[in-house]
Nucleic acid binder design. Sequence first.
DNA 1: ATGCTCCTGCGAA
DNA 2: CTAACGTTCGCAGGAGCAT
Length: 421
Amino acid sequence: MFALLDCNNFYVSCERLFNPRLEGRPVVVLSNNDGCVVSRSNEAKALGIRMAEPWFRLRALARQHGVVALSSNYTLYADISARVMSTLGRLSAGQEIYSIDECFLDLSGMSAQERISHAQELRQTIARHVGIPVCVGIASSKTLAKLANHFAKKGLAGQDGVCDLDAMTSHQRHELFAHCPVGDIWGIGRQLAKQLQAMGLAHVEDLRRADPGAIRNTFSVTLQRTALELNGIACIDLARDIAPRQQIISSRSFGEPVDTLADLREAILYHTTRAAEKLRADGSVAHAIGVHVRSNPFQPKEPQYDRTQLVPLAQPTSDTMRLARAAMHGLQQIYRPGIRYKKAGILLTGLQSANHIETDLFDQTTSRNRQRMQTIDAINRKMGRDTIVLAGSGIERRWNMRREHVSPDYTTCWNNLPCAH
DNA sequence: ATGCTCCTGCGAA
DNA sequence: CTAACGTTCGCAGGAGCAT
């Protein structure tokens, strides 16, 4: 038996913790670069503001209704998330942290009564200890638990932010499934929903009753598993141990378009530095680095360009200088003048544990390099992220993202506390 | 026929 | 005033290649 616990309007709820004036008002949090809406308060949803709506298209409506728009502050959200997750971890047998605002929990061996009262207790504890409102969905597969959470959030399944599909009658379940579009199911996005609808499988109940073998043939094993899970046959286990990452991406849109190789070099070096830090934090090494640049696809009249160049590494490494050299080589190959670039980034792939790689008998520089990177990491951890940087990664950084309405890092930075000013 | 790598598309949050 | 549309991850499956 699985529970899926999901925080309500998570980023907005985080902002409200420290700014009570946001209570009762329409509030949205914007994606990086103040681009799109990624979190909405109930009041904002009531105004018809949709998920992923570009902010510039909402400006007029927002002014009219007094909508508060905030830049995203992932430092704050990550810290609040850690508090929610550790609180839940203490109260649960098995926990899989699925994303920044949701996790699966193992509720096996409980009666329906026990499950529902346990879920209520979780909600109250999170509200008291962290201050974040959450909803809980419960069922016998992860896909159904996600769906149950969806019903709980919409208030379709009765009381108080908890929905246990296994505590309901089959008639009640049927009613919910018959009216819920397939696009609301975990794993079914826009493309699949369109195809399924064309085949007459428009609602959850249709897919649940479909022949799994036929689904496998016309679509994929993934969708077959989804169909089985809708029938309460658990195909996807709770992931108890966190598998090491297979790739690391660092990329970002520019605040303003960039056209010089010099600016792109800075940005690529910056991202290489960030990604290499993550790589070493994971205790991994990379076999290849990919360099990615692209123009702005939302300006179709301008010349379009979108390339990534994969550069294999002679020996797998986590050394920033080596990765940077490879990245510069890749960038050189794909840079084209006369393009207004809007985004650049890098990708580290073929990740492996640093412990398992063969060391080159004739290479005496590797261990010195490793020590050097460890020292730099330690200094940057202690003194702040950009204390020691690559000279090439830029000072002025004209390409930095827009972040016009950012809130303070209330919980992780003393200097950002309002009383420090 | 089989198995590999590389690349693209899709989905998720 | 203008122009202004996210990021990071995993998985499936097809293309291309070698055996």
